[in-house]
Design a protein around this nucleic acid. Structure first.
Lengths: 156, 156
DNA sequence: ATTGAAAGAGTCTCAGT
DNA sequence: ACTGAGACTCTTTCAAT
């Protein structure tokens, strides 16, 4: 399915560093990895062209912005085949930030970010319940997020 | 707990734009939002100082890097009070990228990113099972990720 | 608080190795 | 494929409003 990309140790090191902090200059990153800034530049350009690097995103503290409630929702479908149509409806709800089709107990798994419990209640009760094909849902509200990081990427 | 931050519409607009694409120049973003590049600069500096903006991160295609398997793990603890000690152990496992203490069925909820099923099996069987305090786990393997985006942030 | 311009720092290109 | 230097663009500072 996916092409055989020829990434070496340096490519993985660059990705690892910049996944945590994309603001570092090419010159500084080059020093850290014992190559020139020019080489870092060439590698990043290659990684962008082959689609491995998709861009850079601002990392924000959602709590500080008033988004205090994170919840996970396990969704049971009436029929598994309804996945695509239900996913299409769920996509329209801006509070839903992530959606996965999963094996196991639930048919789908969603993550919701809200300002408060009132808004979560609105999403669960008003938005979700009117979507055809959803049998029932189970909600897990996050009381504490103890970890949120990137995976450690390594070559073979 | 958190300070009353005085963020206006412009702050929220800047955050919204840069959550998706942090590479845009201050001048271009200023044009888009009808202010000068200097104003964008002042606002971002303010947002960094008050901790709302934590930095920028490279967005990568994990599948292209060979990380094909995303799984969610519901964890049942023997006692809820074991949360901190179990979280400390789970933190040591690099494949675990996210960990939440939740209400509902499970005590904790983890997300795992692996190269293949073999590696997932290793995490579940060898790493997780030897942690004291975990009663049992339920695993949900993602067959398809249909959505992964940022929440839409708005002021009051 | 916002602006525009000048100074400083970083990115990008390219010829040489 | 890597390097270093020059051209170019962006960030950062600051005086004026």
């Amino acid at each position: 399915m996916s092409y055989k990309l020829n990434l070496d140790k340096l490519d993985f090191q660059i990705i690892q560093e910049m996944m945590e902090n994309a603001e570092i200059s090419y010159a500084d990153l080059g020093k850290k990895l014992f190559v020139s800034g020019g080489t870092i530049h060439v590698r990043i350009k290659k990684l962008e062209e082959c689609g491995v690097v998709k861009g850079t995103r601002l990392s924000v503290d959602l709590k500080a912005l008033g988004y205090d409630v994170i919840a996970f929702i396990g969704i049971f479908l009436e029929k598994s085949s309804l996945y695509d149509t239900v996913a299409k409806e769920l996509r329209k709800i801006p509070e839903i930030v992530r959606l996965n089709y999963t094996t196991g107990n639930y048919s789908m798994f969603a993550e919701v970010v809200c300002k408060d419990i009132k808004q979560l209640r609105f999403v669960l009760h008003d938005e979700l319940q009117k979507i055809k094909g959803i049998e029932r849902t189970e909600t897990f509200i996050s009381l504490d997020e103890s970890l949120n990081r990137n995976v450690v990427v390594v070559g073979e």
